[in-house]
Amino acid sequence: TVAVSERAEQASTLRQSARSRSTERAELKGEFANTPQKYVKPDPREGEQWDMAHIKADHAHEITDGSRKVLVGVLDSGIDADHPDLAPNIDVNNSVNCTDGGTIDRSPTGWQPTTSDHGTHVAGTIGAARNGIGITGVAPNVRMASVKVVNDDGFIYPEYAICGFMWAGLRGMDVTNNSYYIDPFEFWCQDQANQAAVVEAVGRAVTWSTKKGTVHVAAAGNSAYDLSRKTTNASSPNDSTPIERTINNGCLDIPTELPEVVTVSSYAQIGTSNETQLSSFSNRGKNVIDVAAPGSRILSTIVKDNGYGLKSGTSMASPHVAGVAALMKSKHPGWRPARVIQQLKAQADERPCAPQQTSSSPGALCTGSPSNNSYAGHGMIDALDAVRR
């Protein structure tokens, strides 16, 4: 989702985890002692990225930063081409603007941000370069294409997203990240003809590009809603006057609930510990959520002053998974999307329904087993396993 919740919790600076990175490295040494490793010099603000340490991206980088052959499409509000932490990895030739009625605009400035730095923040999490400045992304050596699907008013209409998915397939992108839901409906109901047509059209674009080899990753949404038990919704249409609607499980948050799309929930750090719990805003749902990733108080790149800032939302969780998928494709270039998705789930670290998740979190309580529950799906994404298995 283009996260409303991203505005929360951005004012203060991150505190490092109480567990030092050196301690974690010692603990993990035995786990991958036989894997070829390299010396990795951290970028200056890498120590503030609790999220990267939590998914073991720092350890993954001791093996690989990813392959230049891998291309990730960032379907969002554009990427700041001038940001020094992003410029080395932006693939200009494959970047495009889809917000002119869903037509292709490849002009040099068309795909860059105009009113939002959302896409720039997302891009930093996926692939900020390891270049001695700022932060480091999950996959700091892969290429990223800006696929602009958010217009200047902040809306992502169906034709924009369809254009983006088709472009990804046409250009041979390995992965796309989709931190939004398609406007103007938070849920598109298949028992209403006009809305069903949109579900069908977007679904066809996703299926076609998946067959071309693209893995699609999407944010679960920020309404603290149980996507497996839909009843009512009062947020749509969001470009006019919203009305309260009775909905059912045939009403889908798209693209995240479409088949073949990896659905990502958001987790937050508990204090300064290495423990996490479901972010208060995150959507959830048994057999809807596939995997979880850090999404609260995430430090990444922003447009203002080519700087860095904190944002929160499932929008911030999804790019961690897209980055891990890019690392996986770097290690296994022949894997098709179904295999990548299966391995993302299989390699995830279990996050059982802990006591705090059943007593203090807003919205529906956690249900399910440690290996598959409504909050974390199959578990927390694991970057290290993606490159060593």
Rank of each mutant, 00 (worst) to 15 (best):
K211C: 04
S235D: 07
L252E: 06
Q195R: 13
K230C: 02
S282G: 11
D253F: 10
G285C: 04
G203W: 08
Y225D: 11
N283E: 05
V198E: 03
C251M: 07
C251V: 09
S240M: 05
A268M: 12
G213M: 12
V291I: 09
Q192G: 11
F187K: 06
A205I: 02
D226I: 12
I243T: 07
S240G: 15
D290M: 14
A292Q: 02
Y225H: 11
E186G: 06
E200M: 14
F187A: 11
A201Q: 02
V264C: 02
A268F: 03
Q269L: 13
T210E: 02
C251H: 05
D239Y: 05
A218T: 05
N222M: 07
R284F: 11
L299M: 04
V206W: 01
E260Q: 15
N233E: 14
I243C: 08
S209D: 00
W208M: 10
K230D: 11
N222S: 01
K211A: 14
T276D: 04
S235A: 13
V262S: 02
S273D: 00
K286I: 15
V198Q: 00
K230P: 09
N274A: 08
S280C: 08
N248H: 13
L227F: 10
K230L: 15
W208A: 09
V206K: 02
D253P: 00
Q190D: 09
S209F: 04
E257D: 12
N287V: 07
A218V: 11
T232D: 08
S209E: 00
P294N: 05
N238A: 14
D239C: 09
S280W: 12
G221D: 01
K212W: 03
R204I: 09
E200R: 15
D226S: 13
R229I: 05
K212S: 12
S223W: 03
E257M: 14
Q269N: 12
H216M: 09
I254F: 09
P255K: 11
G295A: 01
N283M: 07
L252V: 06
R204P: 02
Q277G: 06
A234S: 15
S240C: 14
Q190F: 00
Q190C: 09
E257C: 12
K230T: 02
Q277S: 13
V217W: 01
R284I: 07
P294Y: 00
E260F: 04
T263S: 12
I247G: 05
G285S: 14
V291C: 01
I243D: 08
S282L: 15
N238R: 13
A197T: 02
K212V: 08
S279R: 13
Q190I: 03
N283I: 05
I298F: 02
T210A: 08
K286Q: 15
I270F: 06
C251P: 04
N287M: 14
G221S: 07
P259C: 03
N233Y: 07
